[in-house]
Design a protein around this nucleic acid. Sequence first.
DNA 1: CAACTTCAGAGAGCAGTGCTCTTGCTTTCT
DNA 2: AGAAAGCAAGAGCACTGCTCTCTGAAGTTG
Lengths: 218, 218
Amino acid sequence: MSDILRIAHQQLRTEGSAALSLRAIARELGLVSSAVYRYVPSRDELLTLLIEESYNAFGDAVEFAEARIRRGDLGRRWLTIGRAVRRWAVANPAEWALLYGSPVPGYHAPPERTTAAGSRVPLLLLGLLADAGLEPSQDDPPMTAALRRELDRLRPSLPGELKPEILARGLLAFSSLCGLVSLELFGQFTNTVTQFPAHLDHQLIRLGKSLGLPAPSA
Amino acid sequence: MSDILRIAHQQLRTEGSAALSLRAIARELGLVSSAVYRYVPSRDELLTLLIEESYNAFGDAVEFAEARIRRGDLGRRWLTIGRAVRRWAVANPAEWALLYGSPVPGYHAPPERTTAAGSRVPLLLLGLLADAGLEPSQDDPPMTAALRRELDRLRPSLPGELKPEILARGLLAFSSLCGLVSLELFGQFTNTVTQFPAHLDHQLIRLGKSLGLPAPSA
DNA sequence: CAACTTCAGAGAGCAGTGCTCTTGCTTTCT
DNA sequence: AGAAAGCAAGAGCACTGCTCTCTGAAGTTG
């Protein structure tokens, strides 16, 4: 079973998610294809397992990096999160595509149980914002009551006391980060600049400012 | 030939990019599979054609929306671009996935000729920024010389006079927009808020501010 | 100890895929 | 009229996910 997952991961890495084939896994294991079905009910289920594992590997990597930063250095914690996200994505492009790219062919929406693992990195960012104790400012655009209500409904499952405005900042920052990384990886366009390491750093500092975080200590 | 593309697009819409099958297209046309190969050299080439078409449909939609706004209303032009991007993506999720999602299974990097079509929307945004005549401010983080050089290298193919700082703002805004839309569409996480229409509007205004654009006229 | 149950895997087979090659028919051009 | 294209059919190869049945070995129980 764990052999199957190991080989699946390896195949994912080298061939990409689309080429992930139960038969190839079976071959690699010296088994016949039908034997694999004793352990994995279907290719979709295997993908779900891979997604969960990848989310956790991703969460581990980012959490580990962030944990090494002094708690009070909020700017650097954000910068570190951003860099760690990118580094992991660049090192594991197929996994990143699995998590944040378009849904895999024929695979329909991962079940709910992956959401816990999938929330780890966003929660890390929101935890940082909670630590920062930010207050809404006049830079935060006005919010419709409906949106405020919707954001408040998330609050119970979030760390600390996050005002809707601050939560909105976090969501935008996380989305922007995903966009930056995805464009760098899948990037049809301007593949030159976006893949420049200094580019992400620059944009991360930009985003940090708009989050309301202090500049990272030098 | 155009029949093939029409059916391919339809199949893309209803089944998704992975299920796009030359055989199914042939069936739909009342042809045998090999006959299609007279018109389309391979499935990959068909995908490339679809990508180009989709980029152009996307560009048409966004350009059309933006063209209806008074030139001087810079904030509204940006808001309109953002909304049009989202609307098109929501209306054509499979195409969006093709353009900005993870690369299709087995399909390797679209050829260079798609970049012209693919640049239309980003260029629209950069044109807007050029019209705005923005100047770098102290909100723009310092930039390494290498990054500045890299950004300057893009300048010849861009509209107007875009200082590296302004170009960087634009790149971030476009990336953020892509991230927001992709997370809404593919969204593993917080599928509640991110799909809320008011959410995108709110974040677009946020982004507009950080671009340095005035608030859209009421 | 013998009988029974459980488990791991083999093998065949179905329906589908992309793609190639050969054959034949029809239309068009010379 | 005869040659030259163009268009499509058909068979076939290697591959995919998945289901079904069957065979052994291993472990459990009376």
